[in-house]
């Protein structure tokens, strides 16, 4: 027997959410979604959640199970059981619950809209199909598998503290157009995506990759946009300057020069940014914690420089 501890919420009846427990027998071969259906059909018809295809295609049934977002139809309930044969179910994170496990996806879709998720060719489309080579298709294949389930958005660590962040799903969708050979707005796209709330606000936590039920793996797609942005010369922002400074530092000494990178990241003429670095810099200096002024190279740094040269960096 499995106990399902489900977060219930119905603002028409009670302002606060609460947990309610349901027990099911014979769940050995059932997915979590099958179990939710059993509860709804046999125990409490008022239980609310989204579902449709039951085949991990439509992306409707994402919920949090034991604190992490999953597709309910993609996991066997027995694989999710924790201590005391219990599974705790909550609505997705970073979105407002509407009722029980259903959340308001509006901010999610608004952000997808913001990345202009459609082809913008720079010439009139040809009468016939525009062929893609396997290499061209490979660049956009992974992002194309996104089913917009919101699992990545739910568990994104940045969105927990900053609503302004576009989030992993919208950025993965953006990559699909940034690297599409038929699109003519690459530069405009990466300029827009390099602004506040875009690619450089991703904190590398990897939650989106972990929760993604498909090969879309948003963090990897975000990094691909970063590479394109740098290739396109969109470098007037802290994130791009940081990547360039970091890469340059490793080239010159084989290791990080932590005294230089923060300064180069905020920009030499960004007086407010430089001023903001002062308190932590002074604090570390007075504790004797500042990185050594004379930065030491690794042994055999010449080999590192040679690798950079060979790769035209």
């Amino acid at each position: 027997m499995i106990t399902f501890k489900i977060k219930r919420y119905n603002p028409e009846k009670q302002a606060e959410s609460y947990f309610e427990e349901f027990q099911l027998d014979g769940t050995d071969d059932l997915t979590l979604l099958d179990c939710l259906n059993q509860i709804k059909w046999t125990l409490d018809g008022s239980l609310t959640y989204r579902m449709s295809c039951r085949s991990a295609i439509c992306g409707s049934c994402a919920v949090k199970a034991n604190g992490h977002a999953i597709l309910a139809c993609q996991k066997q309930a027995s694989h999710l059981v924790k201590d005391n044969d219990t599974i705790t179910l909550e609505p997705l994170g970073n979105m407002k619950p509407i009722k029980d496990l259903a959340v308001d996806f509006k901010p999610f879709w608004d952000k997808v809209d913001k990345v202009s998720p459609y082809l913008q060719p720079d010439r009139k489309p040809s009468e016939k199909e525009t062929k893609q080579s396997p290499e061209q298709f490979k660049l956009i294949d992974d992002a194309s598998t996104c089913i917009m389930c919101g699992a990545c958005y739910s568990d994104c660590n940045v969105l927990e503290v900053d609503d302004n962040f576009l989030g992993p799903a919208a950025l993965a969708k953006a990559q699909r157009f940034v690297q599409d050979s038929r699109d003519g707005k690459t530069l405009a796209r990466v300029k827009e995506l390099s602004k506040s709330g875009g690619i450089w606000d991703c904190t590398h936590c990897g939650e989106c990759v972990e929760r993604c039920p498909k090969p879309a793996e948003p963090f990897d797609r975000i990094k691909e946009i970063m590479t394109v942005a740098l290739e396109q010369g969109v470098t007037s922002n802290n994130g791009a300057r940081h990547a360039l400074s970091f890469t340059k530092s490793v080239k010159s000494s084989g290791s990080l020069n932590e005294n230089i990178i923060p300064v180069e990241s905020v920009g030499f003429f960004n007086f407010k940014g430089l001023f903001d670095l002062l308190p932590v810099g002074l604090r570390m200096f007075f504790k004797g914690k500042n990185p050594p002024i004379l930065h030491k190279s690794i042994d055999d740094v010449e080999d590192v420089k040679r690798i950079y040269m060979e790769l035209n960096e």
Partner: peptide
Amino acid sequence: KSAACCGAGVVSEKNPLLADAL
């Protein structure tokens, strides 16, 4: 002592092959 910085997932933003080679 002759190992280079791992790149911290930042060098790979600039050039993924460079980061993997290092």
